[in-house]
Amino acid sequence: MAAYLARRLVGLALVLLVVCAVTFAIFYLLPSDPALQACGKSCTTERIDMLHEQMGLDKPVWQQFADYIGGIAGGRTIGTGELAVRCDFPCLGFSYQTNRPVWDLLLDRLPTTVSIAAGAAILWLLAGLSTGIVSALRKGSFLDRSLMAATLTAASLPVFFTGLMALYLVVQVAEWLPFPSYVALADDPAGWAQNLILPWTVLALLYAALYARLSRSSMIETLAEPYVRTARAKGLPERTVVVKHGLRSALTPIVTVFGMDVGTLLGGAIITESVFGLPGIGQLTMDAINKSDQPVVMGVALLSAFFITFFNVLVDLFYAVIDPKVRYA
């Protein structure tokens, strides 16, 4: 198990390094100059040259990349002269526009995004799985067909449409809830939940529909396996057959997708955050893109790539724990 874990962690580091390199290439080889942005509108050629030198942009690309990686591993001082700034571990670059290290900006926004993603994930897992399982057990019944029609509808509704609909109906017309704003969990747990219930529901609706469809087909497929028939034939109670023999292996594809989805959302629930105006990583990304704050965009890209690959490894570890075949493959 330790060897397997080590192998997966090395793999994770390698993937992240490549993601770093690709991200770096995209942002630093494309035609837009961070020095020009830091300098502002009335900018002389001499000043640009000086800024290039101070920001380290005159160095060869590989050198800049090495500095960047070094910064992530152990912090660094970016630039020289009047623009020198200290950027501590893990240094993901410095945002000249906000005058803060990218990592600090990310840390500010992370709680909001984690709150949105975690709450929604719990909701959609519960709703999606139970719908899928009930449908699979009553395959072909009226209940199954209605549930599947409902999930098909929900899966076709984009979050920004359901979000606006929810804001209009629940906040504007019925006045059941206030317009969502972020309240820290530690400050006021009830307010935190009350403000987030709308974003959670809207986001979870889409995913619950997708998970219901996925778990239904996975469950039906598993229940048709010979070993399930054997379990029934030897007289096990239906509950044991469904939960222990059916659900357990039907969960496999769902766990894979769940890891991917949570990883992706942690990198910014961009649409949800922008509909409800919540200050998470997604909104940070959009602000940074609108202001061409490249170091921030790059930091977000890396952070979310990290979450995606990290959750992939977690999912694989989970398999390794429940299925010895994986460990020795």
Partner: peptide, 21 residues
């Protein structure tokens, strides 16, 4: 293929579309 799938696609799409001419 694995690599492209481990990229946060929406963020990269947004970044690419806004950075490319």
């Amino acid at each position: 293929m694995d690599l492209v799938l481990s990229f946060p696609s929406l963020i990269f799409m947004i970044a690419l579309v806004s950075v490319l001419p």
